[in-house]
């Protein structure tokens, strides 16, 4: 069973210096309720693992605006001037990671893999400081897993076992991050009884999900 808790209880688990995976793509599919509670709790010095820094007033951007992030692994900052300003001022440390590589590094952590080999980034800055490995005559960058204390994800519907289904393009990074957090908290629109989800339609198996937070209608 996944335990149903409030957004406030979820935010209280998160401490300074924790590493957070936060789902969403340009704030679509972001767990906005959990982010709002984190802003209220004002926990500082967090590390974020996110696809993009979203917008100043939506998604991860709210944590950036409130200066709660000390560092981030992220693929795109272009929609958020504030994070670029903080980066230029040395207030936040940014590791830019190609989006596909970021997802595989997160997935590797959840899947018990020691890393992945990819050709993405060969001969670019993304290769710097990383081992290059030859396999079957081709060169690949060895990319290591990215671990997190918490994965904060957003889904459309859960059953009480934590099985999750998503809505349209709000799925994005959520199922991957749900696999990878030491503790995974899913913010959902609806929680149904066990047996009410069609097993063929479950996207995230409940085994990955520890806590559920229901959004109020």
């Amino acid at each position: 069973m996944a335990k149903v808790i409030t957004s406030k209880q979820a935010a209280e688990m998160i401490k300074p210096n924790d590493r957070l995976m936060i789902g969403g793509f340009l704030a679509v599919g972001a767990p906005e309720l959990l982010i709002d509670e984190l802003v209220k709790a004002n926990v500082k010095d967090l590390h974020a693992i996110v696809i993009a820094s979203d917008y100043e007033n939506r998604g991860i951007g709210k944590l950036v605006a409130n200066k709660q992030l000390k560092s981030a692994q992220v693929s795109h900052l272009g929609t958020n001037r504030e994070i670029q300003a903080q980066m230029n001022a040395g207030e936040i440390k940014i590791e830019l990671v190609p989006q596909g590589t970021l997802m595989e590094r997160v997935r590797a952590a959840g899947a018990g893999l020691g890393g992945i080999l990819t050709q993405t980034g060969l001969g670019t800055l993304a290769q710097e400081g990383k081992p290059v490995i030859e396999a079957d005559g081709k060169l690949y960058i060895l990319e290591k897993p990215i671990q997190a204390d918490f994965a904060l994800v957003r889904a459309f519907k859960a059953d009480k076992l934590g099985n999750l289904i998503y809505n349209k393009t709000a799925r994005n990074s959520n199922p991957i991050m749900a696999m990878a957090g030491n503790i995974t908290i899913a913010e959902v629109d609806e929680i149904v009884e066990v047996g009410e989800l069609n097993p063929e339609e479950v996207v995230t198996p409940g085994v990955f999900v520890d806590y559920l937070v229901k959004r109020e209608a």
Binding site: A52, V74, S75, L77, P98, Q99, T118, T120, G121
Partner: peptide
């Protein structure tokens, strides 16, 4: 200007 590569490096590679 450092917006990040987003998905561009993967797209161009694959």
């Amino acid at each position: 200007m450092v917006p990040g590569m987003g998905g561009a490096m993967d797209l161009v590679t694959g």
